[in-house]
Amino acid sequence: MKTTPEHNDRIAKMTFSSVYPHYVTKVEKKGRTKEELQQVIEWLTGFDEDKVKELIAEKVTFETFFQRAKLNPNAHLITGVICGYRIEEIENTLTQQVRYLDKLVDELAKGRKMEKVLRAG
């Protein structure tokens, strides 16, 4: 399934602060912790907890969020389907990066071992 320019634009303009509480709820509902979520975000983006709080307070868009991120060199190992899209086939870089984060949160919530989520082995 291909993403449309409208879909990509909508994702770019979405604020990280509007989605973050949903990530927290999703992982906590499945018995994982906010700390584990932070570990996943830091692995993907390089943002520590203070930086994440700062970006939330600043109400940055996903576009700005990922422009400031230092994407993990192993992020390309994140594959599979999320929201009906095969991650490795998404052509828009920003949309793909947002889906990387969605997929990691999803895997965390599904109880996957942290080393698997973080593509460590």
Score class of each variant (00 low, 15 high):
K26P: 07
G80C: 06
T79S: 09
V27M: 04
Y100K: 02
T25Y: 13
I56D: 02
K30P: 11
F65W: 01
C83K: 15
S18W: 07
W43D: 01
K13C: 11
K51V: 14
Y85S: 02
L77A: 10
R10I: 11
F62N: 02
I41Y: 00
G31F: 10
H7D: 10
S17W: 08
A69V: 04
L104A: 02
I78P: 00
E35N: 07
R68S: 03
C83Q: 14
K103Y: 05
D9W: 12
Q67N: 15
K51E: 15
E54Q: 09
R86D: 13
T64P: 02
L71E: 08
E115S: 07
V52E: 01
P21S: 09
V19Q: 12
R112C: 10
K26D: 09
K53R: 15
V24F: 06
Y23D: 07
K2D: 12
T25M: 13
D50M: 09
P73V: 12
L37W: 02
E88T: 09
N74M: 12
A69P: 06
L108H: 01
K51T: 15
K29A: 14
D102S: 04
I41E: 00
P21W: 10
H22R: 15
A69Q: 04
V40S: 01
Y23T: 03
N8L: 10
S18G: 09
E42D: 10
D50K: 12
L104P: 02
E42H: 11
K2G: 11
A120R: 15
H22G: 14
G111I: 04
D50H: 08
Q67S: 14
E115N: 12
R68I: 02
L71H: 05
E54S: 08
R68V: 02
E35T: 08
L37S: 02
F65G: 00
I82F: 07
V105G: 01
E49A: 14
D106P: 06
L77G: 08
R119D: 03
I87S: 01
W43M: 01
L101D: 04
V52Q: 01
Q97R: 11
F65R: 00
E115R: 09
V98T: 04
L44C: 03
G46D: 05
Q38K: 07
T79N: 07
Y23E: 06
E28L: 14
I56L: 08
V19S: 09
Q39W: 05
A109S: 06
M1D: 13
T45Q: 05
L44W: 01
K2N: 14
W43P: 00
K34G: 11
E88F: 07
V52W: 01
H22D: 15
L37A: 02
T4E: 00
I41S: 00
I78N: 00
G111A: 04
G46P: 05
Y23A: 06
D102E: 08
L77I: 10
E63A: 13
D50Y: 08
